[in-house]
Design a protein around this nucleic acid. Structure first.
Lengths: 334, 334
DNA sequence: AATCGCAGGGTTATCGATAACCCCATTATA
DNA sequence: TATAATGGGGTTATCGATAACCCTGCGATT
């Protein structure tokens, strides 16, 4: 391990002088500066950030915690975050909570003990408040992304879940569906609540009372899609359309339907939130409310850095719109 | 910021005693242990890992650098790595080099300065040797994953690129194609070289001399797919089949072909490496040599941790096989 | 001639946690 | 009874980098 002391010895000067060269601070003659810099290159000196952040009480490290690394929505978001962080001179490390509150807790403790400069996080759900309060207590700036948490007053970059849900529901209604099921994420998640709200409200506005039997709270990780589809299909009056709270739920639902011999959209229309980026799919099939994933990440990081640098007082919620994209998974009711 | 000194003051003892409680070391009476532990909980104490790793000269942090976070192959790999790390008691942080040697360099310097316990990395290519030597110099254990680097003697978890390429090429030959183009990643990447080797060798074994005009070195990030497809299609004897070095290249190629009015597989067969996990795609279309992405990650982390714990002397290369999966993108030559 | 100012560089304490070692009672042992 | 052994806990130095301050010598100023 090369330290500034090793450099100092070779350069015949004190460690402090080396430190000053590294930080471009203090008064150093041009000759010694160059001598020291050359020695640092020769010896492949890399500063020990642990030592540095111990004394400085800060780092240039940002942390991003996403809920599901296998969901293209989050990886695209991550790209946006990464680009923004780089542009603004910060390093970004990610982690993946996998929708697990325990993993989230461990991760928060890790970043806390690393004293990162800031955290951007897709909270698993309302119970995340415990960890978020920890961040508050340790005065580590953070930004919520995609999901908000009641009781936590922080900057947030969110999609307009209610509006998007309304658009999707309305679309299905226009196609003649009135038995529309919803397969939702956990209601402990703000997006799930808003999407449900938009769904219910739109039904009501169109003179339809929602049917609790048609509303499933499955969770965003698509476990048990088969079970939930089974329940829906065995109702006396099964749905003719499904609103899935996100893309992976929709895919799981379609797969399950096909296994049971149903066709989409002939026997069942399906719509959902979040596009699968065209990169992954040759023939996009899902009718979706597409959210600007890349922007989520980029704007989130910008907001976070502004907060870190103390340019702002009040917390701010930024709401990004979604865009309805009509495709083959939804059709006029038979 | 709560420190052990704050705890000590409240508990009326020395910081050392607190430290001993935290580390379950030394001799502490049950009463004081409990008293201290309770105070730590009350005050939400989180140890400062910077201080700790400064004195211990080590951490429980592993670092994973992947080449493209938007490629499902890598995100699935990441899942495997994450699960393995958790199981073995390590925390995992990822980053994304985006196939950029500069980003890779910055990242390596970051993990170096953080003195992580170990690094798992998909090197961008042969030039990565510079950074990898740095890791060696600082004695940070690392494992190469998916790609090897000549001149770097390290553990590695690799796919059998040559064998997979042979299988794919053979498959196309059996379908009657003999003008088979290859759209490859950069030859600075070991996988690209091995895949090319398998391709050429299989052609030769079947009595076909390869045609340099049919071999394109595009890079794994699918830039300029249109340009390369244009070149191939405007040849006097254009290919009737394409072997793409990975999944995203294949998709880009198909998209480009369609834009130009070609149909797959009727006008052009396409095969490639790396499956798109069934999670993302409703109707898998690509004929692929599928690699066990999850295992790459899991085995890689295991190997890394073994090395960290010094259970092994010699470096080891683990080669994982790929599986040919036949689908609609390849068909008998017209 | 005495003082000042500044360039150039060094000393020391500090961040938070831990290793290595020390110290003092009390109990066990010869 | 004298001594060793042990439990329970404290002291001090250390990791690598930096902030705050100090020192020295030389040319400029009065």
């Amino acid at each position: 391990m090369v330290t500034i002391y090793d450099i100092a010895k070779k350069a015949n000067c004190s460690a402090m002088t080396v430190s000053k060269v590294i930080n471009n601070a203090g008064k150093i003659s041009e000759t010694t500066r160059q001598r020291i810099q050359q020695i640092m290159v020769e010896m492949n000196y890399v500063p020990n950030s642990n030592a540095r952040s111990l004394v400085l009480q800060q780092t240039k490290l940002l942390s991003l915690l996403i809920a599901d690394i296998t969901n293209p929505f989050y990886t695209t978001l991550t790209r946006g975050a990464e680009d923004a962080a780089k542009r603004l001179g910060y390093q970004l490390l990610f982690s993946n909570s996998d929708e697990s509150i325990m993993k989230e807790k461990e991760y928060i403790e890790t970043v806390l003990s690393a004293r990162v400069a800031g955290v951007m996080i897709t909270p698993v759900g309302d119970p995340s408040i415990t960890h978020l309060k920890l961040l508050e207590q340790y005065r580590i700036p953070f930004v919520l992304i995609d999901r908000e948490v009641p009781g936590v007053n922080a900057d947030a970059v969110l999609g307009d879940s209610k509006e998007g849900a309304s658009k999707l529901t309305e679309h299905l209604l226009k196609l003649g569906h009135h038995r529309i099921a919803m397969i939702n994420g956990h209601l402990e998640t703000s997006t799930a609540r808003y999407r449900l709200e938009g769904y219910k409200e739109t039904l009501l506005l169109n003179g339809i009372q929602w049917d609790e039997q048609l509303i499933m709270e499955m969770g965003f990780n698509q476990a048990n899609a088969d079970e939930y589809m089974g329940k829906l299909l065995s109702l006396k009056q099964p749905p003719t359309a499904i609103f899935a709270a996100n893309n992976l739920i929709a895919l799981a639902a379609i797969r399950s339907l096909r296994l049971k011999g149903y066709r989409v959209p002939e026997d069942m229309s399906i719509v959902c939130f979040d596009d699968l980026e065209a990169d992954y799919v040759l023939d996009p099939f899902l009718t979706v409310a597409s959210q600007p994933a890349y922007d989520f990440g980029a704007i989130g990081i910008q907001t976070l850095i502004e907060r870190i640098q103390g340019n702002r007082e009040q917390t701010r919620h930024i709401i990004l719109p979604s865009k309805l994209i009509l495709r083959g998974s939804s059709a006029v009711r038979n």
